[in-house]
Nucleic acid binder design. Structure first.
Lengths: 138, 138
DNA sequence: TTAATATAATCAGTACACTGACTTTATTAT
DNA sequence: ATAATAAAGTCAGTGTACTGATTATATTAA
């Protein structure tokens, strides 16, 4: 018998929604959304790439990246400049303001993942990450 | 050091997106979206409830349920009728057409969850479901 | 009973996330 | 060198998912 509540896609959807709620309250004071934070987190590591490359790293559609960066630019956290070697693409840079957020945001977001998995033992947390990674990289 | 790719919320987001892609191709021929299917699956079990109750079961916001049902009604898969005992609420019914989909959809969707977790052993699949459930019901 | 509160649903507005069409610039093939 | 193709990004349109405001109906308290 099919039980939707034990169906993997449903469980993933709901646990993900739950993390979104926690992230939103953590990010609220910064006027940032969860996907905007994730985008920043990728750019902190890999500055100066183009939208295509960023989308590939993040597993996000090109049109979605477009909008995300537009909003991050409006917040003055990133800046897009022309790539002299390929005039089709933008090169994305994190601004000083965007870099300054790093120290404040990381501890907050660390707490989010602890909060989500607070009912799991440390070993279970590791297992969960391992299994999700196995699916993701399949 | 913070590594976004091993961060639980990110992993949940990406595995969930992956399941959405698989679901979309499974549901394509039925002109149904993943959340629309989930809604139907809940209604197959619990017909005649109102939007509030459905939202609670599904963990979905009241306004989201509103839109989902409007689209399912447009597809003639559900129908909303007045509740004589409380004129504020609708009572939701699955139509004959909506019930008929059950036999066709369930096997398709069963295959989706198998496909997602095809790189996991059976034991790992059980573990994953157990851990996600633990988070969800926390 | 009337007034204050609460509840069910909708509406307006914002942000993802995707598809498909389009523009601009690069690359490749003839 | 030109034509065909591909790639980077944007735009329009649809569907979630949310917040906050509003409407209509119920419930509760004075």
């Amino acid at each position: 018998m099919f039980n939707i509540e034990e169906w993997l896609p449903f469980l993933l959807a709901k646990t993900y929604q739950h993390t979104l709620t926690l992230m939103r309250s953590a990010l609220d004071e910064f006027k940032l959304t969860p996907p905007q934070f994730v985008t920043l987190a990728f750019l902190w590591r890999r500055d100066g790439i183009n939208q295509q490359e960023l989308g590939t790293l993040m597993n996000v559609d090109r049109t979605t990246i477009s909008g995300l960066l537009e909003r991050l630019e409006r917040l003055e956290l990133v800046q897009r400049g022309q790539d002299p070697r390929d005039r089709r693409s933008w090169v994305i840079f994190v601004t000083k303001k965007g870099k300054a957020l790093k120290e404040k945001l990381l501890p907050k977001l660390d707490r989010v993942s602890k909060e989500i998995s607070r009912t799991l033992t440390l070993k279970e947390q590791e297992t969960l990450i391992k299994l999700l990674n196995k699916i993701r990289l399949a």
